[in-house]
Design a protein around this nucleic acid. Structure first.
Lengths: 103, 103
DNA sequence: TAAAAATACTCCATAGGTATTTTAT
DNA sequence: ATAAAATACCTATGGAGTATTTTTA
């Protein structure tokens, strides 16, 4: 499981087709298709129904979607957190004692 | 940022040396050292102080540690979640309607 | 001097791209 | 006939390993 696989999955679920999700992530349709196939292999479960023209989530896919969203949000949190705390030289803007406990 | 980088970081912080963290993750010290260097490059901040014989977290590192833990826990949740819900054929053991809303 | 981390190097797996084929409407 | 996904194929990058060097207590 990788963050890129989860992002591919998330955007495909959200946008309804692999091709459009690929555009969104600035990768080819081929690449995105493979990312999702890899994730499905890793999970040992099919995540999309490809019967129609739109990719629709299976039950397993729906279960995963929430978790995938949490992962993606957590990564964003990390980046924005760090961005606000790190100085141009890579040190911390604050002493730890000044920071509220962040759970 | 990758899950492997975060795991390297997490275990190095937890165990106090890169070498022991490497053992724990079944990779070489060289590989683990590089994972952490990559993560530091990505974050744009140093995460460890290497002045002593033990690797000790910088303030930035301490901030990241909580988030890294959450990421790792989330991955574990996904795996155990899926394991309990997926049938040997890769379908879902339950209809979605039977599942409690999992946020 | 001993233990830890960094680094130089080599190798291979894989992630990504292009082009094409398959599938379903 | 068209739009979407899968796939075959190729390439380049990066991630991992071994061996060595650097650092510091």
């Amino acid at each position: 499981m990788t963050l890129n696989q989860l992002k591919a999955f998330y955007w495909a679920a959200k946008l309804g087709t692999f091709a459009i999700a690929a555009e969104r992530l600035h990768v080819t349709q081929s690449s995105l298709s493979k990312r999702i196939a890899e994730l499905e292999a890793d999970m040992g479960a099919q995540l999309f129904d490809r019967s129609g023209k739109r990719a629709v989530l299976t039950d397993m896919g729906a279960i995963l979607l929430n978790k995938a969203r949490q992962m993606i949000e957590l990564e964003e949190e990390i980046r924005s957190n760090l961005k606000s705390d790190v100085t141009p030289t890579g040190t911390c803007r604050f002493g730890l004692s000044e920071l509220s406990a962040t759970t």
